[in-house]
């Protein structure tokens, strides 16, 4: 059965998700548009209808896919859960831990699936590295280093340049590696972080995480790298070995003159299938009842809670202890 998907949001991620749904054999039938030109254009590109209200969209689709600004997620989730429509939500699940945990709770109560798009879990290098760790190839995880460094898109009115809406570089970008670190090394018990305060910074943060099992993780998240660059790197040192992934693309060879200043960066992938497509295939399989979710709703909320602790550490200058949920 082909699922009819309703898209909320018409930005960069909405378009990426739409491609993924199509590859997965499902179809975006509706795009929520309240007069926005971008929504109308996206709907037209996808041969989908524009729904003029969220209620209309929910009534017409099998699944809602929320790719709107972070601070709007909870409202959309509440309403979808109330009418029993399964939800896919772009990361971060919420702007605050309270919002994220409420989203988890309402979906649990309503018994509505809530799938969080933490796409890094679908990158074969990252997923494969975790498999090697689980297989015991490098022993117990000791020190992990994760890095996600790119430029900040210079565009007027871009919502994620508004810290109040997006949570800045920590909640929007570092969350990828925070979720991954927790996925590989377990619950996080303490964080310490610093973020560049200079006016000339687009957003640059370094965090140290301590995990319940004793592992340490160092994460760099940066929007201060040169235009056109998107570097990710991963290294896991374990008691019995070391696993490293080198930058996914040769950093030095990127020609930034080809990159528009306004372009929203995505990690480069030289793969036959984009991990964004792999992710949507997985969500489709979960919604068809043929797979268990790789990312639970509470994983999404836990990642937001860790980001919040990182932000509080940056704000206060202190290390922040976390209550481990569950």
């Amino acid at each position: 059965m082909t699922l009819g998907i309703g898209l909320v949001g018409a930005g960069n991620m909405a378009a990426t998700h739409a491609t993924g749904w199509e590859e997965a054999g499902d179809r975006v039938t509706h795009v929520l548009g309240t007069g926005s030109r971008r929504a109308a254009d996206l709907a037209s590109n996808l041969d989908a209808d524009v729904a003029t209200s969220y209620g209309e969209l929910l009534a017409a689709v099998d699944v809602v896919d929320i790719c709107s600004p972070t601070d709007t997620h909870l409202d959309y989730i509440r309403q979808a859960a109330a009418v029993g429509v399964p939800i896919v939500c772009e990361k971060p699940l919420g702007r605050t831990p309270a919002e994220a945990w409420e989203a988890v709770a309402v979906c649990e109560t309503a018994q509505v699936p809530l799938l969080i798009a933490h796409v890094v879990r679908f990158f074969p290098d990252y997923a494969g590295a975790r498999q090697r760790v689980l297989a015991g190839d490098i022993g117990q995880v000791a020190v992990m280093r994760l890095d996600r460094s790119t430029h900040f898109p210079m565009r007027e009115g871009l919502w994620f340049s508004d810290h109040a809406r997006s949570g800045g570089v920590v909640l929007d970008l570092m969350i990828h590696d925070i979720d991954y670190a927790r996925w590989v090394a377990g619950e996080v018990t303490r964080v310490y972080a610093r973020q560049a305060q200079a006016a000339g910074s687009g957003g640059h943060a370094l965090a140290t995480l301590r995990h319940a099992g004793g592992a340490l993780t160092h994460i760099q998240a940066s929007w201060d790298f040169p235009r056109g660059s998107f570097r990710t790197s991963l290294e896991i040192a374990g008691a019995d070995g070391l696993l490293t992934i080198h930058a996914s693309e040769p950093f030095a060879s990127i020609d930034s003159s080809d990159v528009e200043e306004s372009e929203i960066p995505q990690p480069p992938t030289t793969l036959a299938e984009s991990p964004y497509v792999t992710q949507m295939r997985h969500f489709s399989a979960v919604l068809h009842g043929t797979a268990e979710p790789i990312v639970s709703a509470s994983d999404g909320a836990a990642a937001v809670a860790i980001c919040d602790a990182v932000a509080r550490s940056i704000e206060t200058g202190a290390a922040i202890e976390l209550e481990v949920a569950g």
Partner: peptide
């Protein structure tokens, strides 16, 4: 002016 450190002892027990 300030130093923070996390240490552990997972490697080389």
């Amino acid at each position: 002016e300030e130093v923070f450190a996390e240490t552990n002892h997972v490697l080389h027990p």
